[in-house]
Nucleic acid binder design. Structure first.
Lengths: 249, 249
DNA sequence: TATTATTTAAAACGAACGTTTGAATAATCC
DNA sequence: GGATTATTCAAACGTTCGTTTTAAATAATA
């Protein structure tokens, strides 16, 4: 049986190629033969090192998510320590949660834009084992940040906060996936996201600069006030827009 | 050769089952044998009526998107006619674009939540023919709404508007896909989205009530002001936490 | 009625899939 | 240095995939 001191070359090479192929073609679309051919290893190497194709995908993510999870937790720890028991500001929480993620895109050692895109695309994969895997991997971090948001917005119903966390995850996931139809249509208008190495860093920066203000604006938007007159309400929101969800800073 | 006046029973039955299976398992995950077995038609019927599996997926979407596209365009036409040459309000534009989509979820005759979920999940599929298909199907409508937003927000750089349209599409797509990890974790906290028929209507309404204010808040959020100090911001935020992203209200 | 369109059944196509096997090779340990 | 374990390799496994080809039967149209 294989131990833990294996040939790192082979393992890492497989993980690198698999990360890229899963990103480019999806989990089902990337075959083990394509992966092992490009990694220049034997076909059986994947089953030997990772047990199965599912195991390979899991390890592709685990390699990056362990860093992301501990980083997100420690950043939140530092913030809460500095706050001395006071609630954090929503902007701080979003910055910690999404900023930490987006920093991956600027550092190829953490996975770079390749991993970010893979993450965004895989988060919407309907396969059961993928969903349960993510649920388990994200559980602790999401719980911590959820509670932080509850404390930061004590006057907002908790269900509403969860909804908006939900929406924010969607914006981030989709933006980072880079499969947007807008990109196909508008082309270079918002920058060529499919660029290579050097571009990725500036690309991640541009994305981060623009995504976080958007998310904060969405999180702090006025709440729906009348539960059943949706259309009228939304139209009139343009005028009465500034009186709810006020952040106390 | 098949004409256009076919046996609607078989065609429609295949489309209904395929819509559901593509939603549940993804394009690659749903096999023609599963689809034809559940639709109780011969295996060869798909190739006879739709030419190929790709053709089937295309027609599954075309059946719904033709309604969506014409509805979105006509709603915008009416709004612009009523505005008498004046720019529309952003809330009107979002209501027309996203509200029209979300109405599908309330009407099973238009596809219901099944189609909405399929749409959300397929929008992030990396397969080439899917992306080019959507690009072509969405091109005209997106161009019209983009221009409407440019007119509604004349002081905002157009590139920023495109970015935010991008983010809004992401929130909507992800929320509607219903594969969110938050749902797996928080469970029933925001309502059981996988409910059946009756639930779908109220589910779609609840989603619409909450998504549109969020999107509007994101669209109208203050713009990023310093273009290049992002990284330092993120790292140092833990310490100097209160001086960035200030919103002027 | 003649003709065309649709549906069924059954079988097979070649290709690709993830996985397994058993022998050969490389690395490690006593 | 010999024994043991870890890794690599070529080859084959059985299954499933989308598609096509037969054929006959039924339905719709001219």
């Amino acid at each position: 049986m294989p131990d833990n001191k294996l040939n790192l070359d082979t393992r890492e090479r497989i993980l690198d190629v698999a990360e890229r192929q899963f990103m480019a073609h999806g989990y089902e679309g990337a075959s083990m033969r394509m992966i092992t051919r490009e990694a220049e290893v034997n076909l059986a190497a994947v089953n030997y090192h990772f047990g199965s194709k599912e195991g390979l995908l899991r390890d592709v993510f685990r390699r990056r998510l362990t860093w992301l999870n501990t980083e997100r937790l420690s950043v939140l720890d530092v913030l809460e320590q500095q706050a001395n028991g006071e609630p954090l500001k929503p902007s701080q929480i979003l910055e910690a949660f999404f900023g930490t993620l987006l920093r991956i895109g600027e550092d190829d050692a953490l996975g770079g834009m390749t991993f970010l895109r893979l993450l965004g695309r895989t988060l919407t994969d309907p396969a059961e084992f993928i969903r349960t895997f993510f649920a388990k991997e994200y559980a602790e971090v999401l719980e911590r940040y959820k509670l932080a948001l509850f404390r930061a917005l004590p006057d907002v119903p908790r269900a509403e906060i969860v909804w908006r966390l939900h929406f924010m995850l969607g914006s981030m996931s989709y933006a980072v996936a880079g499969t947007d139809i807008l990109q196909v249509i508008t082309g270079l208008e918002i920058g060529d996201i499919s660029g290579q190495d050097d571009n990725n860093v500036s690309e991640a920066k541009k994305l981060s600069e623009r995504l976080l203000p958007f998310l904060l604006g969405g999180l702090r938007a006025p709440l729906p006030q009348f539960a059943d007159s949706t259309i009228q309400q939304q139209v009139s929101l343009a005028k009465t827009a500034r009186n709810t969800l006020q952040e106390k800073e």
